[in-house]
Every structure is written in structure tokens, then in C-alpha cells.
Amino acid sequence: MNENNIIEIRDLSIEFKLRSGTIRAVDHVSLDIPKGKVTALVGESGSGKSTLASAILNIVSAPGTIKNGSIFLNGEDILRYNANRLRHYRWSDVSMVFQAAQNALNPVMRIGEQMIETVLAHKKMGKPEIIEKASQLLDYVRLEPGRVLKAYPHELSGGMKQRVMIAFSLLLDPQLVILDEPTTALDVITQDYIFDILLKVHKEMNITMLLLSHDISVVARVADRIGVMYAGKIVELGETFEMFENAKHPYTAGLIQAAPSILDDVSENKSIKGSSPNLLNLPTGCAFHPRCEFSTDLCKLEQPRAISVGKDRLAACHLNEKGEMLA
């Protein structure tokens, strides 16, 4: 294991058995999460990013099962941890800010009680000590601890609840925080300051982050590295500037072109044709080929492998194998 990485995912596959067939939501994924960086996973709904994140906490739930692969933390496979070790690992090593904060909080408990409960579930600590820690963190995310600790979730706005969730995720000083669509359903001004706070947490507390988002525009501001997911696979991975300025996979290029901006020429925007694939009935060969403007006969027959296309860059597209780079 490379000591610059917090987490190393190797050849991970996760399947869901449904009445109508078996879905492979994560398909032989390998990914490193380097220390001290913000890594982002971008993909549309159903691309497998949330399933992958739930595997990192080892909380994949039925009907999903981890078919094969390992997830290493300090050289140990967390998928082999016993219940006791897992309880410590979750929240103390890796914590998560779930999508839709309003659903993640218990509506009939005060925020303070919920914070105490969360800490005690993972660690022995005195209540006054927990309240002090919670107050510091709430203050850090620009909330008034005195008011918020006593409040019920319905007394807080969406942006405040999301900041409470960020404070929750930091309670046990984790090394890595996973953020699953942390600003979806929030207004742009709220979204902007939530990311201000997250960047402050990342820099000042030196916390590594894994950000999941469907929106490549949001990711552009925060991420150091971007992985693009499609139909359960990481199809391209690289440093943020490189990805935006020199995409090596047609899907990445398509996502960037489809993102409307308030600045660029609108006539350059265009959608990717077709729609996201049905995971029960994936296209043969490269799963993206029916939507790809560069697809050839080879793409229909053979799945492209992820190959190195530069320093710390991977792309899974036959175009790169032939040395034909995308314009």
C-alpha cells in the first residue's frame, strides 16, 4: 500500500439481485484516495457512485452484496473487519455527510442529543466533553451552538441542517469525510457557502474528502482530482485542470459540453445523445458506445480497459489505445 493513500480500493464489484435480474452497480473498480486531497466522483444517477461510497463505510445493504474486491485502510482490508473494529472505523476513521440532510436527522430529537448519541455509539466520552466538542464544531460551521444544540431539525433551514451534518461528520476527528451530493436541493448562494465551509475544513483541519456529485460545474471549484463514473465503472480519472482542459474519454468531454455556464458562448453547449443505460440490459462492449459520437465496431464488441494516458491519469476508451486523442 502506498503511504500517500488513505484508502485503496481494489477490483471492487457490488451486485444487486432484483426480481427482474442482477444489476452490477459497481463493476471491477479500483481507486486510490490520496491523503490531503479532495477527490470527486462525477456521474449521472445510477452510475454507481453512492454504492461505491457505501462500500467504503462497509454499509452496503440488502439486496446489495459485495461480490469481490478489497478496500484497504493502512494495509488492512476493512471488508474483513469484525463488528467491533468496524464500529471504531466508522466515524473515527471515515465519516459521511449523507444526501438530503433533512432525512438524515431524527425529527423528534434535539440536535444536541443526537450529537451525544452519535459519539457514544462509537466511543466512550463524557457528556460535557461531547457538548464542548459539538459547540466548537457548530461554531466552526458558522452556526450559533447555544441555539442549534437545543433545536429540533424542523426549526432549522435546509442550509443550516446541512451545516449541522458537516459538524456531525467531524465529531470524531476522522481522516476522511465522504460527501454525497452535499448541496443538491439547496439554493446557489447556500451551496456556495457550504463549499466555502467544506474547503475551510479541508485546509485548516487537514481532512481528506471524497465528494460525490452529478454536477461537474460544482466539482470544478472544489476537487483536486476527478473520477468520472459510467454504468458502474470509472471511465476516466485525473487531476481537475487536466480533465477539464484535455478530456480523454468522450463521456467526460460530453459532460463538460453539456454543462451550461453563465459565461461561455451558449451555442457551444450540447447534450449527450440518448439516455443513461439500463443496468439490467447493458450495451455490449463499451457501455457508452450507443451514445458516443466516435464509436466504432470495436467498441460494440470489446470492453475497453482503463489504461494510463498521462501522469496519474487513466481512461477506458479504445480511442486512446490507438493513440487517437480527442480534440
Binding site: R142, D187, I189, D192, Y193, A220, T240, F241, S261, I262
Partner: peptide, 26 residues
């Protein structure tokens, strides 16, 4: 509002700036 809109270009998105607002909450 315009300053807060995410821009799909890291050269613009990563530039340090603050929202021209006195208070963040509506």
C-alpha cells in the same frame, strides 16, 4: 446570485472570491 453560480471551468471556479453579501441567510 451570479457570483454564486457554479462555473464549469476550474480556472474561474477556483479563483478566491467572497460573495458580495453581508448576511448569508435569507
Amino acid at each position: 446570485l451570479l457570483s454564486a453560480v457554479p462555473v464549469p471551468n476550474p480556472r474561474i471556479a477556483k479563483a478566491k472570491r467572497e460573495l458580495p453579501l453581508k448576511s448569508l441567510d435569507m
